[in-house]
Design a protein around this nucleic acid. Sequence first.
RNA 1: GCGGGGGUGCCCGAGCUGGUCAAAGGGGACAGGCUUAGGACCUGUUGGCACAGGCCUACCAGGGUUCGAAUCCCUGCUCCCGCACCA
Length: 972
Amino acid sequence: MTREIEKKWQKKWEEAKLFQSDNNEKEKVFLTVAYPYPSGAMHIGHGRTYTVPDVYARFKRMQGKNVLFPMGWHVTGAPVIGIASRIKNKDPWTLELYEKVHKVPKEELSKLKDPEYIVKYFSSEYHQVMNDMGYSIDWRREFKTTDLSYQKFIQWQLRKLKEMGFVRKGNHPVKYCPSCDNPVGDHDLLEGEGVDVNELTLLKFEIDGKYLVPATFRPETIYGVTNLWLNPEVDYIEVDNNGESWIISEKSFYNLSNQIKDLNIVGKINPKEFIGKFVKNPITGSEHPIFPASFVDPDYGSGVVFSVPGHAPADYIALKDLKNNSDLLKKYNLEEAVDIKILNVVTLKKYSEIPARDVIEKLKIKNQEDPKLDEATNELYKVEHSKGIMSSHIPNYAGERVATARDMIKSSMINDSLADTMYDFAEHPVICRCGNRCVVKIMDNQWFLKYSDEDWKEKTRECLNQENIIPNEVKSNFEYYIGWLNDWACSRRIGLGTHLPWDEQWLIEPLTDSTIYMAYYSIANHLKKIDLKDLNDAFFEKIFFNKDSNDLKVDGEIVDTIQNEFSYWYPLDWRLSAKDLIGNHLSFHLFHHAAIFPKENWPRGMVVFGMGLLEGNKMSSSKGNVILLSDAMEKYGADVVRLFLMASAEPWQDFDWREKEVIGTKRRLDRLFEFAKTIEDIKGSPIDLSNIKEVKLSRRIDLWMINQLNIRIKEATDALEGFQTRKALQNSLFLLKKDIDHYMYRVKHLLSSGERDEAIVFVLSMVFKSWIRILAPFIPHSSEELWNSYGGDGFVVEASWPNGNIYFSNDSNLRDSTSRSIEKDENLEREIIEKSEEMVQGIVHDIEQIKKIVAKDPDKIHIYLADDWKWDVYKIAEEVGKPDIGQIMGRAIGQNVHEDKKEIADFAKKIGREMTKTRYIGKIDEHEILNDAKDFIEEEVNTNIIIHKDNSYDPEDKAKNAIPYKPAIYME
RNA sequence: GCGGGGGUGCCCGAGCUGGUCAAAGGGGACAGGCUUAGGACCUGUUGGCACAGGCCUACCAGGGUUCGAAUCCCUGCUCCCGCACCA
């Protein structure tokens, strides 16, 4: 197999328009895979993602289905904007990434400074690579999410949702760069990647008509405040917050001013003047002194901290340090004030009244500078949050769980204007690529999709429940996410995309514009021919809901054609996507379908993918740890890459690209070609797959081979129905190959005669003809080449999928030849054929083993078969169903199967043990079976064998050892 | 923390509607064949002990259900993944 041959077939498929699917009278299968965001080159991880649907599509086509497998490009969103600007600014890391990892040619590289060009460049590269991989895509339906007709579709979708009341307006915090004047994503950051935005509560402590506003995660500890901390070495300011006077650190203003409208600086404040003064607790009304502390970070929160030494290890140790610092105490005249009582708020099992002290002592923390202080804080925070109970002396909240009390206290304080909310990064600093510090900005007038809406959630759950989810385990994941999803900010300031139709300053966010695009595929080819201005809401309502309207601009006949096409393909049968998208993309997909479409058009199934590893390590483009799909194909060819990706793991498992195993895969593929030559050698003339000469089969081993073929076909078919590509290949390639090897081994003594054995030629030809077809979805190019070379009819792509009933349901051949001993039941026939071969193999194996043990070559080998009464006992044992020897014996004696009770007892013991290891299928003609294979057995053990019908010659009394399916052996 | 999924032989990995499981398949290792040699390919071995087709120990650890458990139940230990404005 060469790339040229692969290209040859790709071209022929295209010319024959094999993958262009239109509605017709056939049963349809519509499957989509997440359309790619083309911001880089396609690597082997992507290869797996897109090969799975292709394999399934090809499989279903061979089963006679009309399959639609389309592809589009999800180019909306912000990442390419960042990439483009980095290329423009000649950011060395980005340039190297695109040159070395994505292998963009030099002359193209500089053009990538245009985000539109990036998506254009990579989507056409994707297109090319997908063709090279042999994907059976209907390219007439290709589109980009920035296409104007797609934008019309998305605007219709959003208007529809708004009409249904699923859209609202609100505020939302985002990572933001004040210098770029834009929200920033993780990929836009120099520092602080993955840092969370936390919500903090600002608590207002009054002093002289102004407020100190410490920020906290734990508003419930307001009951345990003993003092406030200010950093005397830091600049503080007074700001006016809509009439209220707040004192905050100067540095925190940078962040806070992005969150509070009209926050104005009034003037500077000297923190030293506040040390030693008292503030008023907004809840308890107590007076708390203000103490100096160097640990207070002016960048974090508001630069003011309140102190809860009972429950915050940092506060506890800071207070202790202060008490020991007589210079400082003297300087601020705090000797008296520092003598405060530590308060308890939360009760915890296994902890004292002052849990902060317990933790400090447990970890042996000496002072504020101790690095273990963070660990102490985290530990106590977690324990109190999950296990803590508000102590009995806390008014209103006594006995309440901390987690609950926290929310209650917070909202009640905010209600009473005693508190406010702010956001800050969990870690500092967060630096934009432009070099400036980022802040958390509250975007107002943001638009939300109300995923919190209970009715909507309920409908979505209903949608989920009627779907096939593969693998089934992730269904509970979906249930969780549907419950957990909150309102989603669906509009953006930056990126490529569609404008919100009713508020043009916003772009529709890319997770929102990719929820029902499968519906778009079904009509995409038609829309290309329609005038944009005619794509109004009336049009989409007609197409998707068959709703007539006077506003329809498109010609009625054309509309009907499109409408028919949509109703033919919808609902979507399968949606494939990666498992990290369950929480957003895939859940949104459910939400939107549930909201917009009637039940009969809800999606039918989802398949969720695992990740890709490269030699055991996580694949990552940005770290350069990838192999490009084009390179892999160059080296091994598309079929080998496909075969490896499909064989090494099931789609939902993580797969590992290991060079050594890829090479092994290549060898296996080569053997398929060698197999054809083997058949021709035996046949002595070329194979003609459309003209296989039928032969009546009488040897059991020939039937066995056909039976195995049937088994493998059935297993592979079942596996493919459930997207188990690995299991399918395990059967259709590896295990079938093993069976063929076994068969060849079994018949080799028949071939040595030099005379052509027509039965063998027939069996092998049948195997070959099926084999090519069941592998065709995986290795379409090789299969096509073989099919074509050996006289197959038409394209193998269009050949029928083998049904796994060869010679068993339609043909009388088998029954004629074996009717002497075999009942009519078809399954039984199969079982007997399998059992026969097992017996033959068992005999050979046992003889070999005994020979080894005895260490001498016998002249003759006698084989004795189980007496009829033993079969009777076996049958009784089977009826008893468990190795209850007493019962088996009792019944056997009761039925008087044999006169010698001692022998029955011995045998019952034996069969009790044996029956758990053997499959009982009733009495079979052992003599005939062994006779059929006599020449093989003799050749194998290199000794003459005598199969006895009666036991008249039995000098060493071995015949008694015979068990059904397991004859006794005597070596003479 | 919340939620989900795992722990199988040297490694990866099937099995997990209980018995045909010393446990598929691949990789590796070892031995043999082929070959001028290497590679490739083919065959065999790859838990221990037996030496008339057998026995013992084994599927994270401990306990339970059962005539019988890698498979079912409980407990513990441990690993991985997702948690939002990002595709």
